[in-house]
């Protein structure tokens, strides 16, 4: 687990295979948004039920009202329990916002965990608008409300990320004079960190978004930074613009050894 005040914490899990993966924890605000969506859904379902039960009034008003009270109660308690159980830790609200409830060890949710975390809302919702739960979330290292603590659960962000399509950008690459010096390329690959490589890709992809002067200044600063990492023969760099230099860096880093 890593995290701290002012940045989003994440749960880090090391699998028995030795692979480490992290799960970004949901902030109280996003959780409240998901809860808001669920509240709207519950209200809509209750309104639909009320309309449907109007038909029953013909038979008996007493039974219609009794069924309504019972169903409203079952719906308010049962909605999150049933959906989190059926959809592996998600309700409609959590799906919309991209959140998921997981076991604090990264394992699957048990039915008892789902029931306990939802029944504990009785305390988390005190005195109103989940004040206690929200406060617990803010103070807890792992953004847990009291119900999560009792149930041993965490709420994580679960975005449906896709494999990135970097081929488009790489496909536009041209002749790279760095390829004439494989040993220097290897050194560059070794020294460029993932974040630095990513920064170059983003800067090149968004080149048209920059003001021309700013682009020249930015690419100049970036090219200088990478020039200091590895020194290529000056004769190969003659007449090369900063942007071309960065394209060569990106090509070397992302294309690998061609």
């Amino acid at each position: 687990m890593k995290g701290g005040i002012g940045r989003t914490a994440s749960l880090e899990i090391r699998t028995p295979e030795g692979v480490v993966f992290s799960q970004p924890l949901a902030s109280p605000v996003t959780r409240f948004l998901a809860y808001g969506v669920d509240l709207v859904i519950i209200s809509l379902m209750q309104a639909t039920l009320r309309e449907g039960l109007q038909l029953m009034v013909v038979i008996s008003e007493d039974i219609a009202v009794a069924v309504q009270i019972a169903l409203f109660f079952v719906l308010s308690i049962g909605y999150p329990i049933l959906l989190e159980w059926l959809w592996s830790g998600q309700t409609v609200g959590k799906r919309v916002v991209g959140l998921r409830v997981i076991d604090e060890g990264g394992l699957g949710l048990k039915g008892t965990q789902i029931v306990v975390r939802n029944l504990m809302r009785a305390v988390d919702a005190i005195p109103a608008f989940y004040f206690v739960g929200g406060l617990a979330c803010l103070l807890s290292k792992r953004s847990q409300r009291l119900g999560d603590l009792a149930a041993g659960t965490l709420v994580v962000r679960s975005p449906r990320s896709r494999a990135p399509r970097i081929q488009d950008l790489l496909g536009r690459m041209y002749y790279n004079c760095f390829r004439e010096h494989p040993h220097l390329e290897a050194r560059l690959r070794q020294r460029v960190s993932p974040e630095e490589g990513q920064m170059v890709m983003h800067a090149l992809a968004r080149r048209d978004d920059f003001e021309p002067e700013e682009r020249v200044r930015l690419f100049g600063e970036m090219a200088d930074y990478f020039r200091e990492m590895v020194t290529f023969p000056p004769e190969d760099l003659a007449g090369m613009t900063d942007e071309q230099y960065l394209r060569n860096v990106a090509d070397t880093v992302f294309r690998g050894r061609g």
Partner: peptide
């Protein structure tokens, strides 16, 4: 998982890393 391990050590692609982390995290339980 093995692809994720490779990416974590050698790659320069945080987006891809996040994608693989999500897959591994969802499969793990």
């Amino acid at each position: 998982s093995s692809d994720l391990a490779k990416i974590q050590t050698f790659s320069a692609e945080p987006e891809l890393k996040r994608y693989l982390e999500t897959l591994v995290a969802r499969s793990y339980p």
